[in-house]
């Protein structure tokens, strides 16, 4: 028996937006079954269970963790609850895959790692951009020395303005609890993790110039330019949620090396479609029109979740060590601090 014949029982906790991408991914994985889902909102849990044919649903994660059919837990709740639920799950002997960002504090992140070691469970944070095909391929090409030694690495993420989400009173109410640097941590964590993974080192300093949303009732950074000073490389990361009704969701990668150049882009979901653009990647405000509706390459969540489950079945270390995710979180926290203070922030954080 190679292990892959055993089906793992998965419990998904948190039935919000991102859970759908995860559940879609499980549908395509033969060696796992989603046996339960959980959400404090009973309606959401019930709806998800019926949509995906999941037999059991819970409203209390502690109850879900008592379920003997559950081998691994997939955490898709808001970041401020990651630590608590992950720690409870690992103390109950479950393997844990948890959405990024690991947590909102380094102390929590350290505690999560400690608990995972003590309970000898597989614990991984979903740094899914490592599996985004264009970013995965870019790292491969850099590792092969195709462009010599990188000197400048630029990443950009541009997507819809929050006007679209916050332009209504309901939207404002829903998001009003977010702190100023929320997106620098929650979303840009992908880019911090990727560049750190790519270079195998931490930057020495981080500096951010950031802009807040123009509506004073929503003081949140929507444009951030972050410069990372590595030993021999400058990293530049741009976050842009400034433009109203921006029609796509771009992730750009551009590496200038001593012996060449590498550029690429990805459009969330849309990018998987062959010939996705009629207009080219230039973000003119025209509606997106796919040319071909099929998805010829697997998405990042499919690859990431399969990789994690495989490590559980084969009893091997997780493909993305949680220590990496903690370091990426430190970079993001540094970038947030710099945006707030207008000053350079040194790493490692005190």
């Amino acid at each position: 028996m190679n292990g892959l014949e055993k089906k793992l029982g998965v419990c998904l906790i948190g039935c919000g937006n991102v859970s759908r991408s995860h559940l879609d991914a499980y549908m395509g994985i033969l060696y796992a079954n989603v046996v339960a889902c959980c959400d404090i909102n009973e309606e959401a849990a019930k709806k998800t269970a019926s949509q995906y044919g999941i037999k059991k649903y819970y409203t209390d994660h502690k109850k879900a963790l008592e379920d003997k059919d559950v081998d691994t837990v997939d955490i898709c709740v808001s970041p401020q609850f990651h630590a608590e639920i992950a720690i409870d799950a690992m103390e109950a002997g479950k393997h844990v895959q948890c959405e990024k960002p690991m947590s909102l504090s380094l102390k929590d992140a350290g505690e999560m790692i400690k608990v995972s070691k003590r309970n000898k469970v597989n614990f991984m944070i979903g740094q899914s951009m490592r599996y985004t095909p264009v970013f995965a391929e870019a790292k491969k090409q850099i590792d092969r020395g195709k462009i010599g030694r990188p000197v400048i690495i630029r990443q950009a993420r541009r997507y819809w303005n929050i006007d679209d989400a916050w332009g209504t009173p309901e939207g404002k109410k829903k998001y009003s609890g977010l702190f100023r640097g929320f997106y620098i941590i929650d979303t840009m964590i992908h880019h911090f993790d990727w560049i750190r993974w790519c270079l195998g080192e931490d930057p020495r300093t981080v500096y951010t110039e950031a802009e807040t949303y123009p509506d004073e009732s929503m003081p949140i950074f929507t444009q951030a330019h972050m410069t990372l000073d590595f030993k021999d490389v400058v990293g530049f990361i741009e976050m842009s949620r400034t433009t109203t009704r921006y029609p796509t969701y771009d992730k750009k990668i551009d590496v200038i090396g001593t012996k060449g150049r590498l550029t690429g882009f990805d459009l969330l979901n849309l990018g998987k479609k062959l010939g996705a653009h009629k207009e080219g990647p230039s973000p003119t405000p025209t509606p997106y029109t796919p040319l071909i509706e099929t998805t010829p390459i697997p998405g990042e969540f499919d690859l990431e979740i399969a990789d994690f489950l495989k490590s559980v079945i084969e009893n091997k270390p997780v493909p993305i060590p949680p220590e990496d995710s903690r370091s990426a979180l430190a970079m993001a926290l540094a970038a947030k601090k710099s945006a707030e203070t207008g000053e350079i922030v040194k790493l490692p954080l005190e």
Partner: peptide, 18 residues
């Protein structure tokens, strides 16, 4: 605005070398 400039002498496109 916030203006970011990437300026370099590298980047010429060719096989093997700049």
């Amino acid at each position: 605005p916030i203006v970011t400039i990437v300026a370099s002498w590298l980047g010429g496109r060719t096989k093997g070398s700049v």
